[in-house]
Design a protein around this nucleic acid. Structure first.
Lengths: 195, 195
DNA sequence: TAAAAAATTAGACGGTGTTCATTTTCTGCG
DNA sequence: CGCAGAAAATGAACACCGTCTAATTTTTTA
């Protein structure tokens, strides 16, 4: 076959990413298959490669989509909130991971080969989420300490990530921690108070 | 063929795990292959399955071995140290991850299927590392706060893990953080001072 | 309407995990 | 020593996977 009148190349690209994200969410990174994506959208495996280039590129596009959803969820949660905004942001971090288990986990399961770097539009999505956190950390700091916001935000992001990761992968359950979110909030509070 | 006089079943098990760990360290989790392990030790693929039971079991054994090495490195680093022991432990955490990149990463890349739980001898290795941290956290706390050590140690482990993870996966480089270890140490200090 | 361009296909290739009937080797007993 | 049974090891078979590409089909263009 050739061109199909009902899908432009762009639309097809979007279809693949959306279906890929759907399947990734369903079966998880370990069982994800490009062939199955092709089957579900009614195209052949070859088309996936023509449109996406490679499995790595497909994964980057899917993870990019997850990052978009994550930032949207984060900003929606903060919208109109005037108190405890940093705590709200952290809770949103945890909520997104819990509600999008497989997609969130895949953000960290998937890695490009050693020599390659992610494309600019992917890293931009990562920094977009970071920027939200930087903004909220800055607001939580005393006015004289706002210049520390960027560095502190990076570190607090790592702190929250570590807690969320251990919550999701079972480590906290194993260690008897029953409220990972509270632990993360406590660590962030410690750091903000120290600044 | 049948029994080979030069290897007991136990020795063969150990051989497989050691060679598996070697290859995992070399090529990383994504490119790890049980078939290649078999080839390198001069046995057939079937034998790997006879001895280990499944690929999941093999991965658990290999990761268990990594955890053993990690705890040994941690304890060796602390041996004889009388000052800054908690900071030393954290530095050892980072050092091990850096020096055993692929093996360390595989600890988190590999996950059992949803319904299954890791065997007791695996979880014991995880808690063995945790116990070292609990001990050092307790020592760093004022005597009246020692009862918080366990809960705080869990949280600080997550904190350090988050920083180490972002250091290893490139997130910190992307965000401009040039000294992840220092950031982790600062967060731990904040938490200890707050207690 | 014919030629050029674009889109799509599907099969081939080399790899993977997994299973299991078969073969080989070892052990112990008569 | 010979032989039977147990233990160990094999490797072919199966169903997948990502990747590539020659061939085909459709659409667009001239």
């Amino acid at each position: 076959m050739g061109r199909r009148s009902d899908h432009t190349r762009e639309e097809l690209h979007a279809m693949i990413v959306r279906e890929g994200h759907r399947q990734l969410s369903e079966v998880g990174f370990a069982r994800f298959s490009a062939r199955e994506v092709a089957k579900q959208i009614g195209y052949s495996i070859g088309t996936i490669y023509n449109v996406m280039g490679s499995l790595d590129a497909l994964m980057l596009a899917i993870n990019g989509h997850t990052l978009d959803l994550w930032r949207a969820a984060l900003e929606q949660r903060l919208e109109g909130q005037s108190e405890n905004r940093l705590a709200q942001a952290i809770a949103a971090y945890f909520d997104f991971a819990a509600q999008h288990r497989n997609a969130w986990t895949a953000l960290y399961d998937f890695r490009l080969p050693e020599n390659e770097t992610p494309p600019a539009d992917y890293t931009a999505r990562v920094t977009a989420i970071t920027d939200v956190v930087v903004r909220e950390v800055a607001a939580a700091l005393p006015t004289g300490r706002r210049d520390q916001a960027q560095a502190l935000a990076r570190s607090l992001l790592a702190t929250v990530h570590g807690h969320c990761f251990f919550a999701m992968n079972g480590t906290f359950r194993l260690l008897g921690e029953t409220d990972p979110l509270a632990a993360a909030l406590a660590r962030v509070e410690d750091a903000v108070n120290a600044a």
